[in-house]
Design a protein around this nucleic acid. Structure first.
Lengths: 254, 254
DNA sequence: GGATAGTCTTGATCCAGATCAATATGTTTT
DNA sequence: AAAACATATTGATCTGGATCAAGACTATCC
């Protein structure tokens, strides 16, 4: 019965149920029935070519994007025409939620490589949240995470020297890749040096020089886009090597 | 009948209905009946003395705080003992939501002056959100706003020179005060120079010098905590006077 | 009210990282 | 495959703001 069954086209189309990003994306922790509901709301597998925009600043905010593959850069353009990169996004991440309050996008999202996304109309998502408590919680959870990471980024730019920022950036990429089942020590940078510098609040030249330094110190090998980390702990050490260490007076007394 | 009625104690206790922060806080856009529900969930008017903590980093996250009066500083402590100020909060703001994902607070909140807050257990808030769609939306709205403002802060620290950062900080305070019905041009700073410097990623000395410069340029008068802005537009101008202006090539051609 | 301690201001010096400049290495176009 | 262009590396110089240092002003405590 099962062997002579003609392939059912509907079983091929990717559903949330068998999407590899199950643990990272929206469906996290949903019941079988709920998944179906979500599945119906989603327009799946929209493809975005490298350099193509998912949305642009000031566009109406109507849909949330779940990144399935590839990578996306978000950035906003400042009054004077300068660009501020706000983040690089990897599969499993949700994009667009930060524009709920304004109803129009406050940043642009551009594909750094050919990528694919699932689209969910935000109003459908809000309706679903009414019916599915864990969905409501998940949305809050995701946004809370974004605030956390923004605070971390802030602290980094405000307090850490260039070296530590780049090291932390690399470690963060490494971590996210490993979370997604890829190597933690070997990967390709889909973003340019310029983008990295911008995100970290540095000049391109500084980023370039730091890559060279890290290489000279045997921490990593970097050849254009290709990165091979030799010493994760070493990079960690660079991260903590930031500004004025604690003036641990208490350790000397008593 | 109405004149000889003894004062009803329950009509005196502040309810969300007659709270002056109606437009800013949680109740925003709620129906009469819904307000009652919210009202029951809230523990009202908890007083916090200057220097007292509302919560500390790593405390369990259980309740959300709505600031009624006073001002609160949020900050987190980094590995090396340094402190990073993440924000100053004025009446009407909600505190704590950014720790939903971790379940423990990732920052500390301390009163900069004697303040009062309403407390709402977060699980009650989530339940209410199920029943009241506009409440659900409002929570997402508030978090989205926080992400926006964090991005703005990031851009500021990454791209703007010290002058522009302080100017923008003052304008932001001015705006928030005016939103709350206070003077946009005269107010008191409840935070120290140190805190301001920390938030803006600067040294105290720089903040102090900049205040002096602004004063010399007739933009404002600042005497310890007391601020009097003479020229809002002038401050705005300082804000935009940041780094490399647009290389508007297109205006010359065609 | 004088002592001690925090906070703020102002000046002098220094340095991390920006900016400028030149070259090298891709990449795309024709 | 040469031309035109974008991206990356490396060196030389410059500077905004940090750091160091010293007073001035306030606030708190005996």
């Amino acid at each position: 019965m099962k062997d002579n069954k003609v392939v059912d086209i509907s079983s091929i189309r990717t559903t949330c149920q068998n999407c590899g990003l199950y643990q990272l994306c929206l469906p996290m922790g949903l019941e079988e029935g709920d998944l179906d509901k979500l599945d119906k709301a989603i327009k799946r597998q929209h493809k975005v070519e490298k350099g193509e925009h998912l949305y642009k600043m000031r566009d109406a905010f109507k849909t949330v994007y779940a990144l399935r593959s590839g990578s996306i850069k978000t950035y906003s353009t400042i009054e004077n025409g300068q660009e501020q990169v706000t983040g690089f996004h990897l599969p499993g991440e949700l994009l667009g939620l930060n524009s709920i309050s304004t109803k129009f996008h406050t940043e642009s999202a551009i594909a750094l490589e050919t990528s694919s996304v699932c689209e969910v109309p935000f109003d459908r998502l809000e309706e679903l949240s009414k019916e599915i408590p864990s969905m409501q919680h998940h949305l809050l959870h995701v946004m809370s995470e974004e605030i956390q990471s923004d605070h971390c980024q802030l602290m980094m730019i405000a307090k850490m020297p260039a070296e530590a920022r780049l090291a932390r950036f690399l470690l963060s990429l490494s971590y996210h890749f490993s979370q997604r089942g890829f190597s933690a020590t070997e990967f390709n940078l889909s973003m340019s040096r310029n983008d990295i510098a911008n995100l970290l609040g540095l000049a391109v030249e500084t980023v370039s020089r730091l890559f060279s330094h890290f290489q000279d110190n045997g921490l990593m090998t970097v050849e254009r886009k290709h990165v091979l980390i030799h010493d994760l702990d070493g990079l960690m050490a660079v991260t903590t090597k930031c500004a004025s260490q604690p003036l641990a007076d208490d350790s000397s007394s008593a």
